[in-house]
Design a protein around this nucleic acid. Structure first.
Length: 269
DNA sequence: ATGGTGGTCCTACCA
């Protein structure tokens, strides 16, 4: 059977609900994980999405900022919402998705952006980002393998770890999202947790991949000053079944776009 | 070197 999971930082799910709906209709992922929904729980557009066949929805939102959601056409169970750094931010949600006879826990993250100054002593937001990464190191891909549950981790991790994950490695070495302390930290989260970077398993590290282009930069397409901030990881048992990765670059050119584009991982079990 | 754009919600704050 096939199974497709997608991740997208939507930057307001209510403003861009028509884009979410057309994405679901056109690409039919089994599970779509959203970040930056910017939507309190009472206002989440649940019924609109259910009408499209996505009857299993879990969300974790707050007014104005952050917010994550899992939208699924396969059953979800054991939903968890973790408060990383104990700040009350809605930056994580996870649930076990039933993909045929497989159970897969899907973690959906919105990692703090970290502000402008890459120095934890003078910038509290950067300190928060590093502390958040530290806490993520305790998250193990095999945590529920004894119960027959595999793992997928997706989201806007706000870090571009490889040189080819940014438009200019040299120019961005001191720019938050690509500093060594962040990229080392993310690599450690990956290694300690036993996670496989599925995007880089499928697309060789020599090849540039971007999933985000700033609203502030003009001519996003031709200038192409992007970064790979969005990621799809899995436990080692799933990686041999990865069939395809799609970065939907064209979505950045849609009317009133998010600054991030959707990324899909397709499995063939 | 600076400021550029966009979202929330109404005054700054965040990305």
């Amino acid at each position: 059977m096939g199974f497709t999971v997608a991740t997208w930082n939507i930057n307001s799910v209510r403003l861009r609900l028509p884009l979410v709906a057309s994405l679901l209709e056109a690409y039919q992922p089994d599970v779509l994980c959203l970040q930056e929904t910017k939507c309190p729980n009472g206002s989440f557009p649940e019924s609109d999405l259910k009408k499209l066949g996505y009857k299993h929805i879990a969300f974790h939102g707050q007014k104005g900022y952050h917010g994550v959601a899992i939208i699924s056409r396969v059953p979800l169970r054991d939903v968890e919402r973790r408060d990383f750094c104990n700040m009350g931010d809605t930056r994580h949600i996870s649930a076990i998705a039933q993909a045929g006879d497989r159970s897969i826990r899907i973690h959906n993250f919105y990692v703090p952006a970290g502000g402008d100054e890459p120095d934890r002593e003078v910038n509290r937001k950067f300190a928060h980002k590093l502390d958040f990464l530290e806490e993520m190191k305790d998250l193990h891909a095999e945590a529920e393998s004894d119960d027959g549950v595999s793992s997928i981790l997706v989201g806007d991790l706000n870090i571009a770890p490889l040189e080819t994950d940014v438009w200019s490695h040299k120019k961005l070495l001191k720019v938050v999202s690509h500093t060594p302390i962040e990229t080392d930290g993310l690599n450690e989260v990956q290694a300690k947790g036993g996670w496989v970077d599925l995007m880089r398993q499928h697309i060789p590290p020599e090849e540039k991949i971007f999933t985000w282009w700033s609203y502030r930069a003009r001519e996003w397409d031709t200038a192409d000053k992007g970064r790979r901030l969005d990621h799809i990881w899995s436990s080692a048992d799933l990686s041999p079944s990865l069939d395809d990765i799609t970065v939907l670059r064209e979505a950045r050119g849609w009317e009133r776009p998010s600054d991030h584009v959707p990324v899909f991982a397709r499995f063939a079990f």
